[in-house]
């Protein structure tokens, strides 16, 4: 019971912090000032000859991110295989 009261107080505090932070964010759907995204939208077709701008960002402009992501996926698969290998239940 005491934990739930503490959780309610924590909810109120965190909600207040959220409210204060979101009051400085632009409203939903309003045109935000984003020069980088406008550059991508205008020049992706000319520079990289691709129609899908999201794919251009994922695989070309920010290829390092995707390299790390592929490495994370590979590592997770290796971990699952190591957990379930034959004889892993034999203490």
């Amino acid at each position: 019971m005491k934990k739930k009261v503490l959780f309610l107080i924590a909810i109120l505090v965190v909600a207040g912090v959220f409210w204060g932070a979101l009051s400085r964010v632009h409203p939903f759907g309003e045109k935000a000032r984003a020069p980088m995204d406008d550059y991508y939208l205008e020049n992706a077709q000319q520079e990289r000859s691709v129609n899908n701008v999201v794919t251009a960002i994922v695989f070309d402009y920010r290829g390092f991110d995707t390299l790390g992501e592929a490495a994370v996926l590979f590592t997770a698969v290796c971990s699952v295989l190591a957990l379930f290998r034959k004889g892993s239940e034999g203490k």
Binding site: A32, A34, Y40, E69, V72, L73, A76
Partner: peptide, 20 residues
């Protein structure tokens, strides 16, 4: 007008890492 593409690309990254 078009939706901003960079948050969508980074969300794609986050979804795959969350799956792993």
């Amino acid at each position: 007008s078009m939706v901003l593409p960079t948050p969508q690309a980074l969300t794609l990254t986050a979804i795959v890492i969350g799956l792993a």
